Amino acid sequence: MRLILVGPPGAGKGTQAARLVEKYGIPQLSTGDMLRAAVAAKTPVGLKAKEVMDSGGLVSDEIVVGIIRDRIAEADAKNGFILDGFPRTIAQADALAAMLDEANQKVDAVLELRVDQTKLVDRIIKRASDAKAAGQQVRKDDDPEVFKQRLDAYNRDTAVVAPYYEKAGLLSVIDGMQAIDDVTDSIESVLQGLDEKV
């Protein structure tokens, strides 16, 4: 099963991905983690990425796609994977489709966690204050100002990916404002529907 999770930062993609990993035994592929791993492993693509990152630039689609290509070829991704944070653009979505096509594979479903963005900011502020109250470090991403910038970037750059997959008939919209377990149940309903289609 090859899945893509889309939705703004703070929508709960990481939480749901972790549950899917546990249930289906397929890896969650986060582009940020993969970039750091490729840099640490000094792979050819990782070295290229390091050069760009060290100069303060944004890693190009070509490099990100190269890292995804290397990662999905690994043994643990043979039965599927969950992409989180990729594709971020139409160009990346096209590149992913071409890459999977070469391997006679396809994306099975794209799950969009749709949320009320004004309530999302409140959720992040609460998450930050809960962490502080528990004596935990607040994630840098949970700083409300940083979070608003990430949300703006998502709306500007990444929100176009959902309509792309909707047109392809792959998108399922999940109400991300439900309780966490209800979001999981909604995702399960979609995935069971896939099994019935096969």
Results as ranks from 00 to 15, higher is better:
Asp101Gly: 15
Gln92Glu: 10
Leu29Asn: 04
Gln28Ala: 14
Val110Tyr: 13
Met1Thr: 10
Pro87Gly: 05
Ala97Ser: 10
Ala91Thr: 12
Gly32Thr: 02
Asn155His: 13
Asn79Ile: 03
Val198His: 12
Tyr24His: 15
Gln137Cys: 00
Val52Met: 05
Ala179Leu: 15
Thr158Trp: 04
Gly32Lys: 03
Ser172Thr: 10
Glu145Leu: 11
Ala93Glu: 00
Met53His: 03
Lys50Asn: 02
Pro27Trp: 05
Arg156His: 13
Glu102Trp: 07
Gly46Arg: 04
Lys78Ser: 14
Asp142Pro: 07
Glu22Met: 00
Arg2Cys: 00
Val52Lys: 03
Arg139Ala: 11
Lys197Asn: 13
Lys48Val: 04
Asp116Ile: 07
Lys148Ser: 03
Pro144Thr: 08
Val115Thr: 14
Arg123Gln: 12
Asp142Ser: 10
Lys132Ser: 15
Ala49Glu: 06
Pro163Met: 07
Lys148Pro: 10
Gln178Ala: 11
Ala37Val: 00
Asp122Tyr: 06
Gln117Tyr: 09
Glu22Lys: 14
Ala95Pro: 12
Phe147Glu: 08
Thr43Glu: 11
Ser129Trp: 06
Leu58Asn: 09
Met34Gly: 06
Val146Arg: 09
Ile180Thr: 10
Asp143Tyr: 09
Ser129Cys: 00
Arg139Asp: 03
Leu5Lys: 05
Met53Ser: 08
Leu111Tyr: 06
Val160Phe: 03
Ala73Tyr: 02
Gly57Thr: 01
Gly176Ala: 08
Gly66His: 10
Asp195Trp: 02
Thr15His: 08
Leu3Ser: 05
Asn155Cys: 09
Lys126Glu: 15
Gly57Ser: 01
Met177Thr: 11
Asp142Phe: 06
Glu112Gly: 04
Arg2His: 12
Gly32Ser: 05
Pro87Thr: 01
Ala49Trp: 02
Glu62Thr: 12
Val198Asn: 14
Ala97Gln: 14
Asp130Ile: 02
Gly14Ser: 11
Arg88Asp: 01
Asn155Asp: 14
Pro163Leu: 09
Gly80Cys: 07
Ser60Tyr: 01
Ala41Arg: 15
Lys42Gln: 13
Ala128Ile: 02
Met177Val: 03
Arg2Asn: 15
Glu196Lys: 13
Arg114Trp: 00
Asn79Pro: 08
